[in-house]
């Protein structure tokens, strides 16, 4: 029992004897003063709407009249046996689990190259950042054009290696790969910036010490850069994964408001949007959002747990 209690108190971040100290409570007071503006804003505009939609998820909700019939967890039960939702879930997981590491590897590679003394370094950095600041509508419109099966540039180029017949936007098997390519392109710059900032944060003297020991470039990377970058890597991983699971706008603009050929790019948030705003079934839609939350929460928790093994704070 006491073991359990210990575990619980560890979980909420304090040990029993701390609670008896006045200085701890003083610090707690000031911490909450510091947190007040954040908590006020998030409580009002994030937490409250989310709690409210939990209530809605337990109803057969008519959004137009803002009333509903209480049906308990029926929406959840129905979702779990809805093949459309199952497919959306699979597409989302597929997208998130491929695009996140892929983007991270490329971004880290670019960030390391950019972290040297180079001419025109500023221009390079800006170039990689550009896709991220390009409005989604414009970026996607260009992609639709570039990836057109018959007259798009990509197939024109792929034609030289005999792959010019891929029907990017019309074949179900290529929908998620296309979404991943778009995602990598769009979010690369975002991650490059984060990695660059992380690299800058590694003190020079670590490198100097390693060099004195006669380490070569690869060893420096393996034994200095990578371990000291782990807090950044961890941060990028968590943020990008949460973002990837919420993939929506890309789908919406790439396939003009539909979920791709045979709904092959249907993601959970797209599902939420269509059920909510097109079918007016907000109870059902809200339940889907809660299931998404549960999945991402569990994955994040696992990641945090694992992070203790590989993340090193200096």
């Amino acid at each position: 029992m006491s073991k359990l209690l210990n575990k619980f108190s560890g979980l909420i971040g304090y040990e029993g004897r701390k609670l008896k100290k006045l200085s701890f409570w003083k610090e707690t007071f000031w911490a909450y003063v510091y947190l007040l503006p954040t908590l006020a804003v998030l409580g009002t505009f994030s937490l409250w709407p989310i709690i409210r939609s939990f209530k809605i998820s337990l109803y057969d909700w008519n959004v137009l009249r803002n009333t509903g019939t209480f049906i308990g967890f029926r929406n959840y039960a129905e979702l779990l046996s809805d093949p459309e939702f199952g497919a959306a879930l699979w597409h989302t997981v597929y997208y998130a689990l491929v695009s996140t590491p892929l983007t991270m590897i490329i971004a880290l590679f670019i960030a390391i190259l950019l972290n040297q003394k180079l001419r025109m370094r500023g221009w390079f950095r800006t170039a990689f950042f550009l896709p991220w600041i390009t409005p989604m509508v414009a970026g996607a419109s260009v992609f639709v054009w570039l990836f057109n099966a018959d007259y798009g540039l990509i197939n024109h180029l792929l034609g030289f290696v005999g792959l010019g017949n891929l029907r990017w936007l019309n074949s179900p098997a290529l929908a998620i790969p296309l979404l991943i390519i778009f995602g990598v392109w769009k979010f690369l710059g975002f991650q490059v910036v984060l990695f660059l900032a992380g690299l800058q944060n590694i003190p020079e003297h670590y490198y100097e010490a390693a060099k004195v020991d006669g380490a070569n470039r690869l060893q420096l990377f393996r034994h200095v850069t990578l371990p000291l970058l782990t807090p950044t890597t961890f941060f990028v991983l968590i943020i990008s994964m949460i973002g990837a699971f919420k993939v929506f706008t890309q789908v919406y603009v790439l396939w003009a408001g539909t979920a791709g050929p045979l709904d092959s790019a249907q993601t959970i948030v797209m599902f939420f949007f269509q059920k909510g705003f097109n079918n007016f079934e907000f109870g059902y839609a809200s339940a889907a959002a809660y299931i998404l939350f549960l999945i991402v929460f569990v994955l994040t928790a696992i990641n945090m747990r694992l992070s203790r093994k590989w993340v090193h704070y200096q």
């Binding site: 054009w145 099966a149 018959d150 007259y151 936007l169 019309n170 396939w255 003009a256 050929p261």
Partner: peptide, 16 residues
Amino acid sequence: SLYQTDYLSGPFGSGK
């Protein structure tokens, strides 16, 4: 046919 989900006015205009 040219088969695509995007608007057809573009390829029509270009003579495709």
